[in-house]
């Protein structure tokens, strides 16, 4: 399966003053389907520095959530991690034993799930769902935990009387805040947000993201921000990667991707969303649909949908290459661009 050589060092993974908080290296995840293994994540590498926001963009099914689940190791069969390394604060997550893993989860890395609407247990109160994580990890007594839970709810702007509410008695935005309160309960170093606001309306969405930014400034955690809404991501992230069919096709500082996208897929993605600020422009979108991951296309996986592809793309898969400082792209033309510049 490892036909591609490992990707060169991801930005920030070496040479920096401190080791990055999260380091994902050459990650491979497969879904074992009856038709054969589907390559959901294929040789993905990236890293997140302390206090940084890293965005993962791409359309549904490109492997964003699979990566998020891999970091906490909560992938469900038939998904299996077949290769690579995940390091959080130096610790090798994929080598952890059960007990070590249980302690690691939520203390180091917490996660706001894709549908926060469904990530609360409907039959117990929200208070119990904050308490249990405190009791488990901080060995608090139920009374102490309840006190801390009330504080956490206050941090996200919910009155403590709501501890006794059940999830169905709350609005979508409120539930999302509760989930964020649970995520911050142990003061984690990394917060994964998997499409945290997709189910909410735009006003609540902005509100929650602003709140997260404030909390991040106060508490200093790093964020892995996953969404298909690129314009939102550009506003919110320091660095970002664009994924297509399980692979990173472009990775750079968010502003750089916004102002100077190289990969045709990134350009397509950027023109699929209206920007909130800036000039009015035509939305073009990307024709076609995502490829079959059991039998992916040869060469560049995007070539069947690409309008600018040459024969080279259909034959050889382009490698992720640094075209300008900190800007990585897997695109033959991009390489030629830099060669021309040199």
């Amino acid at each position: 399966m490892n036909t591609k050589p490992p990707v060169p060092e991801a930005p920030g993974s070496a040479g920096g003053p401190a080791a990055p908080l999260l380091e994902v290296r050459n990650l491979y995840v497969e879904y074992l389907t009856p038709r054969g293994p589907a390559q959901a994540v294929h040789n993905v590498s990236f890293s997140i520095g302390r206090g940084q926001v890293f965005g993962l963009a791409g359309e549904s099914g490109c492997g964003k959530s699979t990566i998020a689940h891999s970091i906490l190791r909560v992938l469900r069969p038939p998904a299996v991690i077949t290769g690579g390394q995940i390091r959080v604060d130096g610790a090798d997550v994929l080598k952890m034993q059960d007990a070590e893993l249980e302690d690691f989860r939520w203390r180091k890395v917490a996660m706001v799930f894709q549908s926060a609407m469904n990530s609360l247990n409907p039959v117990i109160t929200v208070g119990e769902q904050i308490d249990d994580v405190l009791i488990r990890h901080n060995r608090l007594s139920p009374a102490q935990a309840r006190e801390r839970s009330a504080e956490l709810l206050k941090i996200v702007g919910i009155e403590s009387a709501r501890l006794k509410s059940f999830p169905h008695q709350m609005s979508g935005g409120m539930r999302q805040r509760v989930v964020i309160a649970i995520a911050l309960a142990l003061n984690p170093a990394l917060l994964i947000m998997d499409e945290p606001t997709t189910a909410l309306d735009v006003v609540v969405q902005k509100d929650i993201l602003r709140q997260i930014q404030q909390l991040k400034a106060a508490l200093g955690f790093s964020i892995l921000f996953i969404t298909h809404d690129v314009s939102l991501m550009v506003e919110f992230s320091d660095n970002m990667a664009v994924m297509y069919a399980g692979e990173v096709v472009e990775m750079a500082p968010a502003r750089e991707i916004f102002s100077n996208p190289i990969h045709p897929y990134t350009r397509g993605l950027l023109s699929s969303f209206p920007s909130l600020q800036g000039r009015r422009r035509k939305l073009t979108g990307i024709p076609g649909s995502p490829p079959d991951l059991v039998n992916p296309p040869s060469g560049c996986k995007f070539h069947p949908r690409c309008t600018r592809c040459t024969r080279l793309e259909t034959e050889a898969a382009p490698q992720l290459t640094e075209v300008t400082a900190g800007h990585w792209v897997a695109y033959h033309d991009g390489l030629r661009l830099t060669e021309a510049a040199a």
């Binding site: 799930f113 894709q114 549908s115 990530s119 249990d132 488990r136 989930v179 649970i182």
Partner: peptide, 11 residues
């Protein structure tokens, strides 16, 4: 999702 989240919480 709430079961996955419970697992992620390290319970």
């Amino acid at each position: 999702d709430y079961v996955t989240m419970a697992e992620a919480k390290g319970l």
